[in-house]
Design a protein around this nucleic acid. Structure first.
Lengths: 198, 198
DNA sequence: TGACAAATTGACCGTATGGTCAAAAAGACG
DNA sequence: CGTCTTTTTGACCATACGGTCAATTTGTCA
């Protein structure tokens, strides 16, 4: 079941094209023609590699999931609490900044009610968050940071870091800044630092 | 140009149906048939009231805009800074909670790059935010709250309050709570209180 | 009630879209 | 080169969708 040279090349092209098109137009707004065009293939050729539009979308999403959670996974229970959490915020913001298409892709999926990745949310993601939330609350119980609900804190971080990318137009329009992400980093650091110090 | 009894009733039905369908499926995912069905009208009858799908969507969005910004408008320069800002957070969260469809509708529009309300973002919204951000920064300069970027603070409030509604599925799955909004209020209050006290 | 306007609808149209299929072109390999 | 497999494509299909239109029904009001 080893992939041929051509298979490898075309599957990569398709993944890239699908990311582009799906993130820009959402699942329903994306068309096979658009993806095929972006990938430089004909529509039947596209369907030769993936049996359906949904399959392309699904494989794209699930393939990106683990990568998307890396920053949280890296939160180290043995580290210094404030540095760990602020480091997480910073890594998550960088990730969103560097992968805006992926960010939008997930935002879209979740806005739609996560029809495809719901199982993942209640399974692996739930467990990961529970684990890291426990770490954070352990720190809080030990008095190393101010008391805080770990799960809520993690979700705040998601909400804020993604907002700058997903609501890009709004952020830009309201701030009038060309690159609002710059100010964002500083703001989020003070916001969370103060939250952790109580 | 006064509206007949029937006009009034049907336009109201359509607005309600359109809100339901657009917020659940996004602009592209919504169909005239679905809206007509939800409103209890036939498709041609729907089009008798609104010339096109886009018109329905546009009127719906613009009609809701001012209402959506009420909480921020109500932020009082003469009030007590911390109470004003925390009050704003609370009002915004309540608004999202009580009008989840509207929240999703806007989230969707903005995720898509705000093709329709972009002018409003750079116009009235920009001005409103500038005004209120100045108020906040005035308070900060006077030492009544900790130093903070007003615009960034306002955007944080948007990002967080909307997240609980827009990413509802995710929040539910991750927390495992049936009504995550309850915990949200408490969390946001401590988060912003600490931010304002530095 | 009659006459005019407002409201409603079934049938229809053009286009877009997800997907199929048989046949042709390009690669792999002895 | 010749044979077999993989890849590619033009033509095609069924369905969904936004929207039109002529004709009918319903409401208004003198």
């Amino acid at each position: 079941m080893t992939m041929s040279r051509i298979q490898k090349r075309n599957r990569a092209r398709i993944a890239e094209a699908a990311l582009e098109v799906f993130s820009r137009n959402g699942f329903r707004g994306a068309t096979l023609d658009a993806i095929a065009g972006e990938a430089g293939l004909s529509k039947p050729n596209l369907i030769y590699y993936y049996p359906s539009k949904e399959t392309i979308y699904e494989e794209l999403l699930t393939g990106l999931l683990s990568r998307w959670l890396e920053p949280l996974t890296a939160l180290d229970p043995a580290g210094e609490p404030e540095a760990e959490i602020l480091g997480y915020v910073s890594r998550k913001l960088d990730l969103s900044r560097q992968m805006p298409r992926e960010s939008r892709l997930f935002a879209n999926e979740i806005l739609r009610g996560a029809p495809l990745i719901a199982p993942h949310l209640t399974g692996p993601l739930h467990r990961l968050v529970a684990e890291k939330a426990a770490v954070i609350e352990g720190w809080a119980a030990a008095g190393r940071i101010a008391p805080v609900d770990g799960r809520q804190l993690i979700m705040s971080i998601w909400a804020l870091t993604q907002h700058y990318v997903d609501a890009d137009v709004q952020v830009r329009a309201v701030t009038g800044m060309a690159d609002p992400l710059a100010g964002a980093a500083a703001h989020l650091e003070t916001l969370f630092r103060r939250t952790l110090r109580g």
